[in-house]
Write a protein that binds this DNA or RNA. Sequence first.
DNA 1: TCCTGATAAGAACAAGTGTTTGACACCCGG
DNA 2: CCGGGTGTCAAACACTTGTTCTTATCAGGA
Lengths: 221, 221
Amino acid sequence: MTNSGKTESKSDKAIDRVYNYVKLYIKTNAYSPSVRDICKGAGLKSTSSVHTYLRKLDDMGLIEYRPGMRRAIIIKNSDETQEAGLPADVVRLPCIGKITAGQPVYAFEDESDSFLVNASLFGNSIIGSEDAFILKVSGTSMINAHIMDGDYLIVRKQNSCQEGDIIAALIEDEATVKRFGYKNGIPYLFPENDMYSPIPFNTEGCRILGKVVGLHRYSIY
Amino acid sequence: MTNSGKTESKSDKAIDRVYNYVKLYIKTNAYSPSVRDICKGAGLKSTSSVHTYLRKLDDMGLIEYRPGMRRAIIIKNSDETQEAGLPADVVRLPCIGKITAGQPVYAFEDESDSFLVNASLFGNSIIGSEDAFILKVSGTSMINAHIMDGDYLIVRKQNSCQEGDIIAALIEDEATVKRFGYKNGIPYLFPENDMYSPIPFNTEGCRILGKVVGLHRYSIY
DNA sequence: TCCTGATAAGAACAAGTGTTTGACACCCGG
DNA sequence: CCGGGTGTCAAACACTTGTTCTTATCAGGA
């Protein structure tokens, strides 16, 4: 109204009312409103107008509007970077696949290859899917730290670490999980299993991928 | 219609299929199925049969079935309605608080007291928040099974178990996690720590809460 | 003023869907 | 064997609701 020369100002308000009413209605009733419900709720008198706006909202990606289906509107919660449909404090982390030429390759293709974690559990150190990844444990070299074969580790990316940290590191293009420490002033990666030997940590062939901050286990024996 | 009899054997199977399919459908699609959708999903060939069952389910109080409204079924019984904003394959499980008078009390009030898990990781055994809960480990009695103090266990509810299962059980109103097994034909709950002794499992004071199917750890040392 | 585009309305159409009716098959107790 | 209850089906009916078409209103520019 106050905007001179802007006919959109009026339409924007109507489309906003439609959007907000749909959100409110679904939240209140747990099912979608019909076009005529929205008419009343948004103060529009024609189903056709509502229909137009719903299509626009669908084009904008704000809702999902199935053609012909009754009461089947879905609100697409798009928080920009935030994955659609996830609460703000939850992050989906990619599961690391293999590592070639020093560059980890993430296995995104499968839903089961990603994990949801509550970001709040890690303070503010993991707020996006860029900050961490998942590494599946293979072998029992860390069994004394109670990390078992088949466990999924949450690794927060960082390129340095402190003595005693359990870290994921790249050794000659192979990802491994060990405890970082020193012996006689020399840095080592220590397995937590007497059957294995410490690995000298020489900065040439080794790279720190990150620190293990969490663990998921779905095979309980 | 007047409820006359109680011949359940056959109808219960179909009505269960209807109920489960409606739950699944809503969980998957975020809106209700139509009667004809349910026909296909529940293996019934007549909309009329489905209609009958829906009315019965409404009478039982399991769903809310609005006369005349399309796709407006609500699952009622329900912390079971899918949490708004979560993807279909993700379930938020409540963290068990304390146990009083034999009844576990769930601590729902705090977001940090609940966990998100990918339902797909557990096959179809966990599809709703009523199927499982989270139990925080206190103590080291299961350390040999690599379950540490402070770990969070995902416990699928069930009231029986097999030898060798790691289960959560109620012993004299106290929740505990042990491995179930037999010694000399007598059932015991075995700790996985030589410092502790097996606990005889007598059905009077003991109740099985569920089986441990997953583990989350957020304190890595 | 007249035209034009945007917005909204109203009506009509068509499809999806809830509901009802009637019928058939089956089981079970007389 | 019979009759009632139950579970299912098929089809028809009627209402809800998505969709489209046409028209009305209004603001701004030539």
